[in-house]
Design a protein around this nucleic acid. Structure first.
Length: 393
RNA sequence: GGAGGGGUGGGUGAGUGGUUAAAGCCACCAGACUGUAAAUCUGGCGCCCUGACGGGCUUCGCAGGUUCGAAUCCUGCCCCCUCCA
């Protein structure tokens, strides 16, 4: 029997929020943590030196993308993903299950697995739960994920149930394939709870998945189009059903407010493309909410976007300059914006951890949410609701 | 001086009698993006009224004219470009 590839220690609890540490073959990381997304073995636009200096301890990559290019075999031959991409900290790889959701018409799902048509060259590829695990063995991340089927959470119940049951069957296959492999001693495997937005299905899924002794448990199929309230309720429900002593990973989340809210429910790990994707399109996080740097109002702001921010961007450049870079479509714009957003998120996580350690997370959360307006759209809706409420009364 | 071509909304550029407030692209304004097919996508973009639906007004160098109806046809004028001398 191999010794466990990772260990998880809880060091403090504040309400349902947990402070902990995950130790992997490539070092340890404090939780709750946010993992920047390096889908194609790169956090778009940044070097890993920069990623680390921003405060990231663990990064996420994607086995589907690496399988297609440069090839899992090639990554293995290059000495594994850590060496290949130049990141010696913990890495988690997603199996490619999410691509069952995001690739739409390019894939076909059967009980055997998922047939993908490569978005790169149109070639046909077939992923089975077993092959997805083998890919991840070759790639060599510290934490690998079960091959699941992600669906639109609030979709038709029969479709959600079907995907959930398939995910369950595949979870067992993944577990067996991993447990019987030599990699079980050096890579951790997480199971994934599905079940859409239906409490009964989530309960069933959490029960099934936690029945398999994975190294950690993930909540999948959220933040894919359902309401914030549904996401919150499902996360809360699943968290109460997950074992206390294993890390809990809410996949694909999230926005600043989602992170704060989900930590309050007991989530330990997050990943999300939002900070970097949104940054590349000119949206930046600030303590008072998300803004679009391309807006006219920043044209003459010669101070940093957030003078209190400790990131490289805010330390060296004005909002007006950042806006100019975006308007001129200069590549430095997305880079500086990505650094800012990742720093914002990673500092937020550090602040969260600090507040849990000091047993004042509840207040921290309340203060943060009171100040933070997610987007202009939500801001507008909030104002409209208020207006309608006042008027209707 | 001769021959020909052309002037369209911020720019470029379609449109040659009605279905045109006028394509497309750019610029500009605004929004979105949650296990990355994304440095992407969406909406707005003459003026006025409306929360919206919608309605009103004024536009295609300028001035006249033909016509039920003109960016489109005719006349005059003003500019611009190409070639020849």
């Amino acid at each position: 029997m191999n010794s466990a590839p990772i260990s998880f220690q809880l060091t403090a609890v504040d309400g349902a929020a947990r402070l902990g540490q995950i130790t992997t073959p490539h070092g340890s990381a404090q939780t709750p943590m946010f993992m920047p997304v390096a889908t194609q073995a790169t956090v778009k636009g940044l070097t890993f030196d920069e990623v680390r200096s921003l405060g990231a301890e663990t990064v996420l990559s994607n086995a589907y993308h690496l399988y297609l290019r440069p090839g899992a075999r090639r990554v293995d031959d290059a000495g594994g993903l850590h060496k290949f991409m130049g990141w010696d900290g913990p890495i988690l790889t997603d199996s490619g299950g999410y691509q069952a959701f995001s690739m739409g018409s390019l894939r076909r799902i059967t009980d055997e697995g998922i047939a993908f048509r490569s978005h790169i060259d149109g070639s046909q590829h077939f992923f089975t739960p077993r092959s997805a695990i083998e890919n991840q063995h070759e790639i060599g991340a510290d934490i690998i994920m079960c091959f699941d089927q992600c669906v639109f959470s609030a979709g038709e119940s029969s479709a959600v149930r079907e995907a959930m049951e398939r995910t369950h069957r595949w979870a067992q296959v993944c577990f067996d394939a991993h447990a019987s492999s030599p990699n079980a001693g050096r890579q951790a495997l997480f199971g994934i709870v599905q079940g859409g937005t239906m409490p009964a299905l989530r309960a069933e899924s959490a029960d099934f998945i936690t029945g398999i002794p994975f190294d950690g448990y993930a909540i999948g199929g959220l933040a894919v189009g359902e309401t914030k309230a549904e996401m919150h309720d499902m996360t809360q429900q699943v968290c109460t059903a997950l074992p206390h002593d294993k890390p809990r990973y809410l996949m694909g989340v999230g926005s600043p407010e989602d992170l704060v809210n989900s930590v309050a429910l007991g989530v330990d790990m997050f990943d999300c493309v939002l900070p970097t994707r949104v940054a590349r399109n000119g949206a930046l996080f600030t303590p008072t909410g998300r803004i679009n740097i391309g807006n006219r109002r920043y044209a003459e702001v010669d101070d940093p976007l957030d003078p209190a921010c400790d990131c490289y961007t805010c330390g060296n450049y004005s909002a007006a300059y950042l806006r100019h870079l975006f308007k001129a479509r200069e590549m430095l714009g997305p880079r500086l914006a990505s650094m800012h957003n990742l720093r914002f998120i990673l500092r937020l996580m550090a602040d969260i951890r600090e507040s849990i350690a000091a047993a004042r997370f509840t207040k921290f959360r309340a203060d943060f949410l009171a100040a933070y307006q997610p987007t202009d759209e939500t801001r507008r809706q909030t104002q409209k609701h208020r207006w309608v409420a006042e008027r209707g009364a």
